[in-house]
Design a protein around this nucleic acid. Structure first.
Lengths: 341, 341
DNA sequence: TTTAGCACTCTTCTTTATAGATTGCTAAAG
DNA sequence: CTTTAGCAATCTATAAAGAAGAGTGCTAAA
């Protein structure tokens, strides 16, 4: 962490005006524009001097000599950390949001809704990780015979996560056999899925061999159960609007990154540790694809424990004052919706 | 249908060479290039005359006076219908494909695999509609109590489509009550879902009122059951590679079209009627977004009846000779995988 | 009917010129 | 010591002009 440079009030004010204008207009801002735009009783020459200092401090840069100046990544960082004045959400909108996240769904669907909601509101790309399930507790396990050799396995985990799988068995199992097997497995209800799996595996040879095929099927299901980390993206297309038109390549590689997931997951994972809203400026990491983009995240939690991250990704030139409150609030709404389970 | 223009063999040969080269290189082809490229014992002047005729017939056009010529939509159409020589798949690859479509999944997962497979092979965008389920036959309906007021409803439809829903009930239902309800509903097994729904609705007031809440829940589930038409897209990002770089707008609107789904579904629906591989040239419809793109589709079937469409979408400049066999074969593999249910 | 030759057209690339924006510096003013 | 007016210098963006190259269409001859 580089320590905050000492900047006097006037310089801060000018920096703020400049960045706000740049975010609004998207073009380099000159000294003249700053004096004109707002009621500063300063000459453009003075502003020029200040801008020059700000450039020396690494907060601004100019694309070329005769253009105005634009913020550097450090400039954005300082702006966000020290200069930003938020635009809070209206009560009304807040209620609208809450209505959209219907808690009567499983957690994956809920998370997808949140991603969609936040994308639509901010006109950016929504990004929400699936909730990390620390414990996978077996709640229920049932066999439903479908046909001679086909059995539907129903697995209820934790509160409301239901999984089905159809087992294709090498021989026919009678209804009573299935009931016996279910009864046998009932002893594991309330236990951790992983433990269940291991104990089943250990007991595989000691139980009646006739059941082995069925048990092996169950173990297979348990094995593929621990859903790997993942996230739901919504509104990728919004990125088209912000792209400064020339850098199609950049857009492409960002889209690829969404597909790859690996890199983004790592970053999101990192945000899970943080407490509140977290702002990740693409330029701050070495990560090339994220250059010129910003990621705003907030963790959401179940039972007081953070289990996932919700956020948006968009051009570094986004209206932070509006986006940040939205991310913040949506994370809270998502948390409360998940807690109603 | 405009009737096929009369073109002599030489002209056809030249047209073929030209289009093949244009597909390969992506740049307007001149008379010189055609003579040089392949062992035609003709002068460029002769070729020029022929090209001029082909232009008069509306099969070619030139971007400007001093560029070569490129195919028009009609040119592509003639090429595909009359001049194309397919490159069949090797046995080996064919087997690889078949392996990838594991029939032990529900139909939605299978269709998604097919979309992914075809996208990866062709480097285009895969597009597969979900199988249309003409009949939705109730195979099984079970209630699983989760907690006091929460009941998991398990619905098995047709061969292997399983749906779960958690019902949040206004009062507690005992285990025996649930069993009674299940028993009551068992009479509907083997019937069409829609009929079940209507009969349940009709009987709602005549049965014991105590059951009404539960039955209402089941009806709700049945109501939302008929999955609306939908498709699975894979490899949208491949479109980035083909875009002739300048038309970002076009790419954007195409991506939007994928999201909207409506228009594309209509086109795909139309392809379901056709018998084998169907080629849809974007320029042939009025549809603006699809201009300069081609859609190659083939229907797939269950029990001899076509139930869905599989295809790829990509630049009109795609290697049809390779893509068409792949689409054809994949549709057949998907059909056979679905029929193993 | 085919072909060689050539003028013509149009794009693309390079060069040159011009106008406009913004800065940095200097010297004067507060 | 800070602020400001003024001005030369720098660089972009745009247009205009010229040169090179590609490909065509036409004409006349084979």
């Amino acid at each position: 962490m580089s320590k905050q440079p000492a900047i006097n009030d006037r310089a801060q004010q000018i920096l703020k005006i400049l960045i706000e204008r740049y975010i609004r207009e998207g073009e380099p801002v000159g000294s003249r524009a700053i004096v004109d735009g707002c009621g500063l009783s300063l000459s453009s020459a003075t502003v020029r001097n200040v801008m020059s200092e700000l450039e020396d401090l690494g907060l601004l840069k100019s694309p070329h000599t005769s253009a105005g100046r634009i913020p550097t990544t450090r400039g954005y960082r300082f702006f966000i950390d020290s200069l930003l004045t938020m635009t809070p959400l209206s009560e009304e909108k807040l209620k609208d949001f809450a209505k959209e996240l219907d808690p009567v769904q499983d957690s994956k669907a809920l998370v997808a809704s949140a991603s969609q909601l936040i994308s639509r509101i901010t006109h950016l790309t929504g990004l929400v990780t699936l909730p990390r399930q620390e414990k996978l507790i077996l709640r229920q396990l049932e066999f439903l015979p479908l046909s001679q050799r086909r059995v539907l396995v129903i697995l209820v985990v934790n509160e409301r996560e239901v999984q089905n799988r159809i087992l294709e068995l090498p021989r026919e199992f009678s209804r009573t056999e299935l009931q016996m097997a279910a009864h046998y497995l009932n002893r594991y209800i309330g236990k951790d899925l992983y433990k269940v799996r291991n104990e089943l595996l250990a007991g595989l040879k000691t139980t009646k061999e006739k059941m082995d095929d069925l048990m092996q099927g169950v173990i297979d299901i348990l094995d593929t159960q621990p859903q790997e980390k993942d996230y739901v993206v919504c509104g990728q297309n919004n990125l088209f609007n912000q792209t400064e038109d020339h850098d199609v390549k950049k857009l492409h590689s960002l889209f690829e990154a969404f597909n790859e997931k690996r890199d983004l997951l790592q970053i999101l994972e990192h945000c899970l540790q943080a407490d509140g809203v977290q702002i990740f400026l693409g330029g701050e990491s070495g990560c090339d694809v994220l250059n010129d983009y910003s990621l705003i995240t907030a963790p959401y939690s179940v039972g007081g424990k953070p289990v996932g991250v919700l956020g948006v990704i968009g051009s570094a030139r986004m209206p932070y004052d509006q986006v940040i409150p939205v991310v913040d609030v949506t994370a809270k709404i998502l948390s409360s919706a998940l807690n109603q389970n």
